[in-house]
Design a protein around this nucleic acid. Structure first.
Ligand SMILES: [Mn+2]
Ligand SMILES: [Mn+2]
Ligand SMILES: [Zn+2]
Ligand SMILES: [Zn+2]
Lengths: 149, 149
DNA sequence: TTGCAAATGATAATCTTTCTCATTATTGGG
DNA sequence: CCCAATAATGAGAAAGATTATCATTTGCAA
């Protein structure tokens, strides 16, 4: 009765590597996260998870997301709006930042090594080692070439 | 019976300039804010306001802080921890940023024009005009001169 | 001084997240 | 394959922050 199941998602693999018990729900949530390339909040993750396993509970989504974050698997983001949002954690090197379109609310990611090192340098100069950078910028689309829309 | 009252605080003055009705409570909260040079949350503001006027309500502090923020008098900050924190809004030019000491939680302000223009340049290059920068860094004090504690 | 619109105080409601606890599932070792 | 130990889950209660409601009070302009 041990059919070769669909292979675990990258995040489920990570989950096992960290020695976390790999439950069906965690597998589901890990899959949903691996499958996402945006910044869903818990409600949205729950909606996506229910598509895969209708018996999952939102309490478990909250718990799992916290567990994954504590284990460096997920990153919590705060774009305002009162709910935490999540995405798969960046690798060891490239952190990334977020530009929020003031009109549409769309989140646009960017990287910038000059920004990385400038920030690190500033805090070093203040006598600290940089632990976390929490940065997001809000911008309004430049009106170029006249005022037509 | 109209004794020359103690002069209004800078923020109360701003309040009047914006055409906001200047109530006793707003005067009190404006005074408390003008008097603060840290980043109090609403509970803390309420505590300080009660010292001045014991009849003030926390609902009014919430309302006033929101009103002041909507009118550009206050800036809301989010340092994590689930409660909004407030400080008098910067003038037109120099925005400032925050370094949070990971050990003590202390908030240290800093300015950096290179950072200002780098951020503005990045978002411009992405086709946007910078509206708001939300930036705080968490740092751990550098252990210098050996590993002794 | 009066009147009216707006603000206040008290408290209920809302919203997100965490906690509780009885039930269920995972996993390592027989 | 089965058991026991242990941890995770589901449902709902609870917590914590903020906003809404509404009767009463107040600021302010006429
Ligand atoms: Mn927040
Ligand atoms: Mn500078
Ligand atoms: Zn991202
Ligand atoms: Zn500040």
């Amino acid at each position: 009765m041990k059919e070769p199941n669909s292979p675990d998602s990258p995040l489920a693999e990570l989950c096992r590597q960290r020695g976390l018990k790999l439950t069906g729900q965690r597998r589901t949530i890990a899959f949903v996260l691996s499958d996402s390339d945006d910044h869903p909040d818990v409600e949205e993750l729950y909606r996506r998870a229910v598509e895969v396993d209708p018996r999952i509970s939102i309490a478990t989504v909250y718990r799992t997301v916290r567990l994954f974050e504590e284990n460096g698997i997920l990153q919590r983001r705060d774009f305002g709006g009162g709910r935490a949002r999540y995405e798969v954690a960046d690798g060891d090197q490239g952190d990334h930042y977020h530009l929020i379109d003031a009109d549409s609310g769309r989140v646009i990611e960017f990287e910038n090594t000059e920004l990385d090192s400038l920030l690190a340098g500033i805090v070093r100069q203040m006598g600290y080692d940089l632990v976390t950078t929490r940065l997001s910028v809000v911008g309004r689309p430049k009106a170029k070439g006249g005022t037509r829309d």
